[in-house]
């Protein structure tokens, strides 16, 4: 890989420790506060008392799933991890093109003998590696938690659950890259990407909460519909969902590169 890939990787090593560490700490904290099964069943009872629609808000169709240690982590950690990484994804997506274009730095970089496609591909490749590393690094928190906890966890399943965060995060990064290339303005790209991610989350929540043909149809366009962390922890990776998310991410990255190649750079 080229100089831009290496530079991007070097400049963002901190993100691995910060985001991965933060996410890992959340997992570790959850494992430490859950000292025995009574805590989990108590929590499940509390959720059971809620209207069925509210369970959807927590990403649950029933409370049965969370009555196991792994299910509880799937509910308390993985269900929110993707939303938390949405913030990271938007920040990173802006870094691929928008930040430097907005600051005028891209003029210097693109006056060098590097094609726009090469630039964007190297940056995206670097952020794919960084995202994978930080997600895997966050698993360290769960690993430490499992050692310190008295509960029995299926760490293989939890590792797969951790890996399952990557495709959805890549879609959010790709979405932000695409909008930053399309709109050319950092703030517009930021607003639109954030709005779509939040909208996508709530569509999924509503569709999970209420059975409605229109919502079910719209939910197909929500990336969260293809991120079923509880099922992954229970049954392993859902390859169909993973494939859909990776294809969408690849299409968005490709469209971004294509568009970036055809438009003016800078103000």
């Amino acid at each position: 890989m080229g100089a831009i890939f290496r530079y991007t990787l070097r400049q963002n090593m901190q993100a691995i420790w910060q985001w991965g560490g933060g996410l890992g700490a959340l997992g570790l904290m959850l494992m430490l506060i859950v000292t025995d099964m009574d805590v989990i069943t108590g929590y499940a009872d509390l959720l059971d008392a809620m209207p069925e629609e509210m369970l959807g808000f927590f990403g649950l169709s029933s409370t049965e799933m969370i009555t196991s240690p792994d299910g509880f982590i799937a509910f308390g950690f993985f269900a929110y991890a993707l939303m938390i990484l949405g913030v990271y994804a938007v920040a990173v997506g802006l870094d691929v093109v928008a930040n430097e274009e907005d600051a005028g730095v891209l003029d210097v970089l693109l006056s060098l003998p590097v094609s726009r496609t090469r630039m964007i591909v190297q940056r995206i490749a670097a952020y794919v590696v960084i995202t994978a590393l930080l997600v895997v690094f966050s698993f360290g928190g769960l690993l430490v938690g499992s050692v310190l906890s008295d509960m029995e966890y299926n760490m293989g399943r939890l590792f797969i659950g951790t890996l399952n965060i990557i495709p959805g995060t890549l879609v959010m990064i790709a979405l932000t890259v695409f909008f930053s290339v399309l709109f050319r303005r950092r703030k517009t790209a930021l607003s639109v990407s954030a709005a779509i991610i939040i909208f996508s989350y709530f569509i999924n929540f509503l569709a999970e909460s209420a059975s409605n043909a229109v919502l079910d149809m719209v939910n197909r366009f929500s990336l969260f519909a293809y991120y079923d962390s509880q099922r992954v922890v229970r049954e392993g990776l859902v390859w169909g969902d993973v494939a859909i998310l990776l294809v969408v991410a690849a299409l968005l990255f490709g469209a971004s590169a294509w568009l970036f190649n055809r438009r003016d750079v800078g103000l």
Binding site: A103, G104, V105, D107, V108, S111, L112, P113, V114, S115
Partner: peptide
């Protein structure tokens, strides 16, 4: 032939912005 061309050029923009860190 943008790439070949840019190999042979040195450019200083009017408003120079670089990587601040």
């Amino acid at each position: 032939d943008s790439l070949e061309m840019r190999r042979l050029v040195g450019f200083l923009p009017g408003e120079l912005n670089l990587w601040r860190n």
